[in-house]
Amino acid sequence: MYNEPIFLEPVLQERIWGGNKLHTEFGYETPYSHTGEAWAISAHPNGPSKIKNGPLKGHTLQGAWEEHEVLFNRSEAAGETYPLLVKILDANQNLSVQVHPDDTYAMEKEGVPYGKTECWYVLDAEPGAEIVFGHHARTHEELRQTMANGEWDTLLKRVPVTAGDFVYVPSGTIHAIGAGIMILETQQSSDITYRVYDYDRTDEDGNARKLHLEQAAEVTNVPHEDPKNESIQETIEDLTARKLVEESYFTVYHWDLRGQAVIERKSDFLQVSVIKGEATIQTDDQTFSIEKGTHFIIPHTIKQFSLEGDAEMIVSHP
Rank of each mutant, 00 (worst) to 15 (best):
I6C: 06
F7I: 05
E9A: 12
P10E: 11
L12E: 06
Q13A: 09
G18Q: 03
G19T: 02
G19D: 04
G19F: 06
L22P: 08
T24Q: 02
G27K: 00
Y28H: 13
Y32F: 15
S33P: 03
H34I: 04
T35G: 04
E37F: 00
A43Y: 05
P45E: 15
P48T: 09
P48G: 07
S49W: 00
K50A: 05
K52H: 06
K52P: 05
G54P: 06
P55S: 10
T60G: 14
W65R: 00
W65E: 02
E66N: 13
H68R: 14
H68F: 09
V70L: 13
F72V: 06
A78K: 12
A91E: 04
L95C: 08
S96I: 00
V97E: 07
P101C: 00
D102T: 00
D102C: 02
D103M: 02
T104E: 14
A106R: 03
M107T: 05
E110R: 14
V112F: 01
V112C: 01
P113E: 02
Y114M: 01
K116M: 08
A125M: 12
I131E: 03
I131Y: 04
G134W: 01
H135A: 06
R138A: 13
T139H: 07
E142K: 13
R144M: 11
Q145C: 03
T146K: 13
G150R: 08
W152R: 02
D153G: 08
L155E: 03
L155T: 01
L155K: 01
G164C: 05
D165L: 10
F166M: 13
H175K: 09
G180C: 13
G180Y: 04
M182T: 08
M182F: 04
I183N: 02
Q187K: 10
Q188N: 09
S190I: 06
D191Q: 13
Y194T: 10
Y194S: 11
R195C: 11
Y199L: 07
Y199E: 11
R201A: 00
D203W: 04
K210Y: 00
E214I: 14
E214P: 05
A217G: 10
V219E: 01
E225L: 10
K228G: 10
K228C: 11
Q233W: 03
I236H: 08
I236F: 01
E237C: 07
D238M: 10
R242Y: 03
L244A: 06
E247L: 09
Y249C: 07
F250V: 12
F250G: 07
T251S: 14
W255A: 09
Q260D: 13
I263Q: 04
R265I: 03
D268E: 14
D268Q: 12
Q271I: 11
D284E: 15
T287F: 11
F288M: 04
T294M: 04
T294P: 01
H295A: 03
F296C: 04
I298P: 01
Q304W: 00
G309D: 06
E312M: 12
E312G: 12
V315A: 04
S316I: 03
S316M: 06
P318Y: 02
